[in-house]
Design a protein around this nucleic acid. Sequence first.
DNA 1: TATTGTTATACTCTATAACTATA
DNA 2: TATAGTTATAGAGTATAACAATA
Lengths: 145, 145
Amino acid sequence: MTTSARATRLAASLVRLSHEVQHVFTDVSREHDLTPQQAQLLCVLAAGPHRMTQLTRMLHLEKSSVTGLVDRVERRGLAERMRDGHDRRACSVALTAEGKRLAHRVHDAVVRRLAGVLDGISAADAERLTSVLTRFTQPELRRGA
Amino acid sequence: MTTSARATRLAASLVRLSHEVQHVFTDVSREHDLTPQQAQLLCVLAAGPHRMTQLTRMLHLEKSSVTGLVDRVERRGLAERMRDGHDRRACSVALTAEGKRLAHRVHDAVVRRLAGVLDGISAADAERLTSVLTRFTQPELRRGA
DNA sequence: TATTGTTATACTCTATAACTATA
DNA sequence: TATAGTTATAGAGTATAACAATA
C-alpha cells in the first residue's frame, strides 16, 4: 500500500478533472431538459434493457431511489417497465423510441464537447491515456481495495 | 471543429472514468457522514474563505442553492458566515476547526483510494497524463467552446 | 426463508421568482 | 439601478424501514 507522491498528485488532478466532466455532463443534460441522474439512466439503458436490481448496482443507488428515478423517466415517456416472463417479481426497464433518441443525443453532445478539447492529442498519448483510464473500470476500485 | 475518432473514443472513456471517480467521492463522503455536495464545499473552502457569489461560480450552482448548502454545513458546525467589513451586503464563508479537519480527511481518503490504483504508473505516463488533465481546468471547456 | 420491487417518510439538493439590504 | 444574499416554494434525488408478492 505504498502510495507514491506521484500517484497522489495524479489522483488529485483526476478528482478535479472528474468535477469538470461532471459539470459538462450536467450542462448538456440541462440543455436537453433532463436532470443529470435521468440522463445517466438513459445512457445506461442505451446499452439495452436492465432489471431494477442491476440498475441499483450500476448507478450505486438504493433500490427505492431507482424506483423513483425510473418512475419519473417513465412518466415522461422515455422508458417503460416490462414484466419479466420468467420471474414474476422482476421487471425489465427499457427505453422507448424517444428515450433512445434522447440518450444518443446527450451522449453525443457530451463526447463532442469533451472531444473538442482532446482533439489535439497525439496518437501515442491517446493510447497511453486510454490504457490508464481503463484501470478505473476495474471493480476493485469501487470497494476501496 | 474536427473531432477525430480518437478524441471521441478518449472522451467516452473520460466520461466513464468521471463516473467512477464520482462514486469513490460519494462513498468516501458517506463514510465521513457527509453528502458529496457538502464534502465538495468543504474541499473548496479548504483553500481559504470564499464569498457566496464566488461559491456559485466554483460549484456551478444558483445562489439560493449555495445559501441552503452553506446553511446545512453551518448548522453542523463545519463552517461559518463572517460579515465582510468593506461591503456590508457580502459575507465570507470559512471553515471551522472541525470543518478543516474533516475536509482534509475526506480529501486524503479520496486521493489515497485513487492513488492505490495509480501507483503502478510510470513517471513518463504520469507526466503525460497530468499534462492532458490540466487542459480540462481551462475555463473555455465549461461554456462549450 | 430469501429475493424483487414498491411504498411511506424524512431529509437534502436544486432552480425560479420575489424579496431585503447595501452600493 | 445594480449587486449580494435570503426567503418562499416546488420538484427532484436519496436513504431507511416496512411492506407485498413471488421464488
